[in-house]
């Protein structure tokens, strides 16, 4: 809790957004569950989508995100 009292929280200094921070916290909490609740919760953190950035009206190569790697 000491980190949150600093001027800038440590995760913000590391370039994370609040969403990324809270996601990691949520994953930690989910990992603390016992079976069978654990596998049930694991089904709720499946990530799959593909992102493509656009420059000058052209689509760049899409990247597929499959696991929560952040």
């Amino acid at each position: 809790m000491s980190a949150t009292t600093a001027a800038v929280p440590f995760w913000r200094a590391a370039g994370m957004t609040y969403i990324g921070y809270s996601n990691i916290c949520a994953a930690l909490v989910r990992n603390c569950l016992k079976e069978p609740f654990k596998s049930e919760a694991a089904s709720r953190e499946k990530v799959h989508f593909s992102v493509a950035k656009w420059t000058d009206g052209k689509q760049e190569k899409p990247t597929v995100r499959t696991e929560s790697d952040e």
């Binding site: 990324g20 709720r44 953190e45 499946k46 989508f49 992102v51 656009w54 995100r65 952040e70």
Partner: peptide, 22 residues
């Protein structure tokens, strides 16, 4: 600026959308 597809391959869940929002 960006386009995102294949969002609905699994049922939509908060983790997925949160990573996307990030």
């Amino acid at each position: 600026e960006m386009s995102v597809t294949e969002l609905q391959k699994n049922p939509i869940n908060y983790t997925q959308i949160a990573v996307l929002a990030d």
